[in-house]
Design a protein around this nucleic acid. Structure first.
Length: 505
RNA sequence: GUCCCCAUCGUCUAGUCAGGCCCAGGACACCGGCCUUUCAAGCCGGCGACGCGGGUUCAAAUCCCGCUGGGGACGCCA
């Protein structure tokens, strides 16, 4: 049997370091056993998936140095590798489960489900989940209603009693009572599959033998196992990797930490170093080596060397590793070439050139005017940020609200960035000029610079977020109480603004 | 609220499965020194952990139980 593993990112945002982490371990496991590693795009969420995000993920993953044998860009014998192109397959398999009596149609409205949920939560909790109302429907009647065009979903039937024994390569047997397992929606009312159905169908059809995925999936493993059994398929071996953590130990999140691979690129980390660092998360080399390349990791890879505790993703050691990679592995030519590839090229400088060309008379002014495009976090003091008529609280508010606002943007493009920042000034009932004043130093280190919106676009979302957050930290942070208060005011202002918009329509 | 996962220096970890070689080893960070025109780098040294309580055993970081702590999941998101 050939070992086949996969990574299955969802193209709903920036490429996440967690994706690279899981990809790395899957890659190493497959290659160690002479097998194949597959990249599959899980874009069944039509509302949130975008082609741009998919492209960024592919590019970023390739940048890290991990390669895949099959995928949407390179093809392969088990394609298509993009779930949105496999809809009929899932529909057919959902139908199969219906026929076998392993699944049922559910006509409950989202409103009823929300009510049910609220009621369960209020009524002392216990296991939350679907109450099985539509389970009582006769299959013929349900089929007739569906044929008549009535909106519905397909749900998985789950045993009401007994224990599901999940075999985990890292954690041994995990026992979960079937009563804890929800009757998961398999096919949404738009005809698209949920993750659970698509994932199981694809893993089987693509011959995946080992699933190494994040720990967050443990609780849904029984659903997946049930699905394999319902189809009459052999399930792959499961292995739940520990989750990367923020310094406060919570699951790594962009709110608390830069999570985008693009950010680490922009900061000037070498892909070798980033991969090396990710390889030190929960894994260690038998010879205790700290610095090692991908091939060496493949060679030494062994799940027995993976520890189950969640590691904190803390960049201090990444910095040190990156320094070693620069110093020990780049000769002068390679160094020059890498720096050019990093930022001193038309791709990165392209959008910046029109911004600076108008504003300089000598190239030697370039570092002063545009140096911030090449920097990491900006050296700041509170005095640099407290400008115009604003006081310290105003500045903190501007930074916090802006931070919250940029996360609402679906795409990191000039027009939405500009529209959103203008809207934020309105929400704060501030003149744009005053509102933007502290953002210039926060993002560029200077009271004035190249146009802010364009500069933000070039900097990228994660770098922008990181600098704003850093500026807020320099200002002493919001503090728990102020954060709560500000967040409330922010939400209220947004709601009011949304109300106004609706009234205008 | 319910279920599940996890637990060694501040951080990443070795050791845990096969108990003694561990009054716990390495790395980052930090502190001090050496080197050096400066700063790095490099070298040397220091600080610093088996969460707590019970068992089992001649012997427990390692096995068992309880507690505590941390985390995750409970969506027509993935």
């Amino acid at each position: 049997m050939t070992v086949r593993t996969r990574v299955a990112p969802s193209p709903t945002g920036d490429p996440h370091v967690g994706t690279a982490y899981v990809a790395l371990f899957n890659y190493c496991f497959a290659k160690k056993h002479g097998g194949q590693f597959v990249l599959r795009i899980e874009d069944t969420d039509r509302a949130r998936s975008t082609a741009e995000s998919e492209q960024m993920i592919l590019d970023a993953l390739r940048w890290t140095g991990v390669t895949w044998d099959e995928g949407p860009d390179v093809g392969g014998p088990f394609g298509p590798y993009r779930q949105s192109e496999r809809s009929e397959i899932y529909a057919r398999h959902a139908e199969l489960l219906l026929e076998k009596g392993e699944a049922f149609r559910c006509f409950c409205t989202p409103e009823r489900l929300a009510e049910l949920r609220a009621h369960q939560l209020a009524g002392g909790g216990g296991a939350l989940g679907y109450d099985g109302q539509c389970l009582t429907l006769e299959p013929e009647e349900a089929a007739a209603r569906a044929a008549a065009g009535e909106t519905h979903v397909v749900r998985l039937k789950v045993p009401r009693a007994g224990i599901c024994h999940v075999q985990d390569l890292l954690r041994g047997t995990i026992d979960i009572a079937w009563s804890e397992v929800d009757m998961q929606v398999l096919l949404k009312s738009d005809g698209m599959p949920t993750y659970h159905l698509a994932n199981v169908v694809d893993d089987h059809l693509m011959g995946i033998t080992h699933v190494l995925r994040g720990e967050e999936w443990i609780s849904s493993a029984p659903k997946h196992l049930r699905l394999y059994a319902a189809f009459g398929w052999e399930a792959p071996q499961l292995c739940h990797l520990p989750l990367l953590r923020n310094p406060d130990k919570s699951k790594l999140s962009k709110r608390k930490n830069p999570t985008s691979i693009l950010y680490y690129q922009r900061m000037g980390y070498l892909p070798e170093a980033l991969l090396n660092y990710l390889g030190r998360m929960a894994f260690s080399m038998p010879d205790a080596a700290e610095k090692f390349g991908l091939d060496a990791m493949v060679e030494a890879f062994d799940l027995a060397r993976v520890s189950p505790g969640g590691p904190v993703f803390d960049v201090e050691k990444l910095d040190w590793l990156n320094g070693r990679w620069i110093r020990e592995d780049l000769d002068d030519d390679a160094f020059a070439e890498r720096v050019v590839r990093w930022a001193l090229n038309r791709d990165y400088l392209g959008p910046v050139i029109p911004l600076v060309k108008e504003r300089i008379e000598r190239f030697s002014q370039l570092p002063g005017l545009a140096g911030f495009f090449l920097e990491g976090l900006i050296d700041l003091t509170p005095e640099m940020l407290v400008v115009k008529k604003l006081n310290e609280d105003d500045v903190r508010r501007v930074l916090a609200w802006t931070l919250w606002q940029i996360d609402t943007l679906p795409a990191w493009k000039l027009e939405p960035i500009e529209a959103t920042l203008r809207a934020t000034a309105d929400l704060l009932e501030m003149k744009l000029r005053d509102y933007l004043a502290p953002l210039f130093p926060a993002l560029t280190g200077k009271p004035s610079s190249t146009p802010l919106f364009q500069s933000m676009e070039a900097l990228g979302r994660d770098m922008t977020r990181a600098r704003l957050k850093h500026a807020l930290d320099v200002m002493g942070g919001l503090g728990k109480k102020a954060e709560k208060r500000e967040r409330k005011a922010f939400d209220a202002a947004r709601a009011a603004a949304a109300g106004d918009d609706a009234a205008e329509d």
